[in-house]
């Protein structure tokens, strides 16, 4: 469904700080896959996500969505068919607006933002039920400003917002990394639930090896711009933490981490 073809990307080109993240990198996301991407710092996993989302352009190569070339399509146009949750909980929501207002904006994604009323009272019940389904008790806080909520609560609402309208793929950018372990668990379970219920295709970058193994149907480990482990479905289920850990330790020693 999404194909990255012969991607090359350098940062700080022609300076002493030049770093090559990818050279001739290829990656394919199939419909219905829930992919966890792990890897050390600088392995290119975040760059992979950013190139897919259009936040950064590759130096060379193509990005295809359902066979259509979207390499140079602006991020905001691509975003109409993408959902994205960021590491920073404040990035997915408008913190000076209420939960109700945020959900209303998200619900209108891809449509005209004209002069009609931004918040529809008719939709209140629908949104409230949606928020109640997260199970964090936010249904009584529909008119509370987003900024007053905790990171985990904001991240949960971000997830709802990113998946409210039909999307081709959900991009999860280390979305539990800024949360405490317990909250991260709740958000991760919610993520899994939403992906399953809506039958979404998802690409999740994570630092948490356990999540990568426990959730999703495909695991990808990256190292210095290459995929060094790629297992899906049955093969993935057979993987145990030790296997992946050993591999990770080996590459860590290699680069002297």
């Amino acid at each position: 469904m999404i194909e990255l073809i012969d991607i090359s990307k350098k940062f700080n080109a022609h300076t002493v700080n030049e770093t090559t993240v990818f050279s001739d990198f290829n990656f394919t996301v199939e419909k219905g896959q829930f992919i966890s991407v792990i890897g050390s710092n600088g392995s290119g996993k975040t760059t992979l996500l950013n190139i897919t989302a259009g936040s950064i352009l590759p130096d060379v190569g193509k990005v295809l969505l359902n066979g259509k070339d979207i390499t140079t399509q602006p991020e905001f146009i691509r975003a109409r068919r993408f959902g994205r949750v960021f590491q920073d909980p404040s990035k997915g929501v408008a913190s000076n607006m209420t939960i109700m207002e945020n959900l209303s904006l998200a619900d209108n994604k891809g449509k005209m933002f004209g002069l009609t009323r931004g918040v529809s009272k008719k939709k209140f019940q629908e949104y409230q039920d949606m928020v109640a389904s997260i199970g964090l008790g936010l249904e009584d806080k529909m008119h509370v400003k987003m900024g007053a909520l905790s990171g985990g609560q904001r991240q949960s609402v971000s997830l709802l917002m990113a998946t409210m309208t039909p999307i081709d793929i959900l991009l999860l950018d280390e979305h539990t990394a800024a949360l405490d372990p317990k909250t991260a668990e709740v958000v991760m379970q919610l993520t899994n639930k939403i992906i399953k219920e809506k039958n979404l295709t998802a690409l999740m970058v994570t630092h948490n090896l356990r999540y990568a193994l426990e959730y999703g149907n495909r695991i990808v480990m990256m190292h210095q711009g290459h995929v060094i482990l790629d297992k899906k479905d049955k093969e993935k289920e057979k993987l145990v933490v030790d296997d992946v850990l050993n591999l990770f330790n080996n590459i860590s020693i290699e680069v002297g981490n």
Partner: peptide, 23 residues
């Protein structure tokens, strides 16, 4: 209170959100 006005307010608050909403 309109959709356009709310987007304007959101722009000052969080530009990333506007992009995410496809605008």
């Amino acid at each position: 209170k309109s959709k356009a006005g709310m987007m304007l307010i959101a722009t000052g608050n969080n530009e990333t959100l506007i992009t995410s909403l496809g605008k």
